[in-house]
């Protein structure tokens, strides 16, 4: 086990290194240059070159790469070209917003998906099963921004139940509200993107749980339990569901990481100031350091989540040994 963990850690480090190198290279071969965004009509050529120099863009690529790696090891992602702020502080600030939204969403859709999945696997072949599978599939394959716009249109624009986007109501926050009011306001803004997320995601857990449950039901110990004359409910909840959860645990860890990355579309629709929107905006502005940093952080989160899932899996399933 110890050897396995060390092996995995080495593997994670190598993967991470390769990914950040690829990202670095990608930006340097770009047919574009970040300083082109800061050019204003009142700028002379000399001034333009000064700006390029400030960004370190006049150095040879090899030198830039070494500087980049050196800074990376020290945890310094550089400063954003656009705002001049340290990239790390921007990412942390945005990441927190994203995690707040997506983790809540993943947990909720996970619970809903598992609950329905368990129930319909038991009712294999029934109309209810078909209905839920098709419903789950439909939402799973629905185009995210479109669903988001529809929800905004119905619930925020027509019914006016929820705000039109954003994370807080500035009018409330500028007068120093109490903590309770702040939480209420955040919650109010959270609901609509959250619902969109859950509706889009529960389908995948539902299918996973159903399939896993069906596979488990074919196992010998279920047949044994049946033969012993145990109650259906006991078999369902104690024996089948518990074992069927195994692959779902892995899926859970992985989907937390992917939901952070996949937040791009939802955040764009709901004006949520998260990491996904930051990547889109920074890419459009050719803000290399920020995109590089965001990618590095997301990749790290994905790698660690996969790692955690593997470890968790080996603890949960005694059949697996490393």
């Amino acid at each position: 086990m110890g050897k396995y963990i060390i092996g995995r850690i080495v593997q994670i480090i190598i993967t991470f290194f390769i990914v950040i190198s690829i990202i670095f290279l990608m930006f340097r071969v770009m047919p574009s240059d970040p300083s082109s965004f800061l050019l204003t009509p009142s700028m002379t050529a000399e001034a333009k070159q000064t700006i390029r120099k400030q960004f370190g863009l006049d150095e040879p690529i090899a030198v830039q790469y070494v500087i980049y790696l050196k800074n990376f090891i020290h945890g310094d992602f550089g400063n954003s070209f656009y705002s001049g702020r340290p990239v790390m502080s921007i990412i942390m600030e945005k990441m927190l917003n994203t995690i707040f939204l997506s983790t809540t969403a993943v947990i909720l859709s996970y619970l809903i998906g598992i609950f329905i999945g368990k129930a319909i696997a038991w009712k294999r072949g029934s109309k209810a099963e078909k209905f839920f599978v098709i419903l789950g599939l439909w939402f799973y394959t629905t185009f995210t921004p479109w669903l988001g716009i529809m929800f905004l249109w119905i619930f925020a624009f027509k019914l006016k139940w929820f705000p039109l986007g954003g994370m807080i109501t500035p009018e409330k926050w500028i007068f120093d509200p109490s903590l309770f009011e702040k939480i209420c306001d955040l919650g109010h803004h959270l609901i609509l993107p959250l619902i969109t997320y859950v509706v889009l995601w529960f389908g995948s857990y539902l299918l996973l749980m159903r399939n896993s449950m069906l596979e488990t039901l074919k196992e010998d110990y279920i047949l044994t339990a049946r033969a012993k004359g145990l109650k259906e409910k006991v078999i369902k909840n104690r024996h089948a569901a518990r074992n069927a959860m195994l692959p779902i645990v892995t899926a859970f860890a992985i989907s937390i990481s992917f939901s952070i990355a996949g937040a791009v579309l939802i955040e764009t629709i709901f004006s949520w100031p998260g990491i996904g929107r930051t990547i889109v905006e920074a890419t459009l502005r050719q803000d290399y350091p920020l995109v590089q940093g965001a990618f590095a952080v997301i990749t790290m989160v994905v790698l660690l989540a996969n790692f955690a899932a593997d470890i968790a899996y080996s603890y949960l399933d005694p059949r697996i040994t490393y």
Binding site: F27, M30, A261, V264, V280, L284, V291, F295, I298, L303
Partner: peptide, 14 residues
């Protein structure tokens, strides 16, 4: 490991 949509956005920008 690399998230697809953000990666594609970056590549498109490139």
């Amino acid at each position: 490991t690399v998230p697809i949509l953000p990666l594609l956005i970056v590549i498109s920008g490139i």
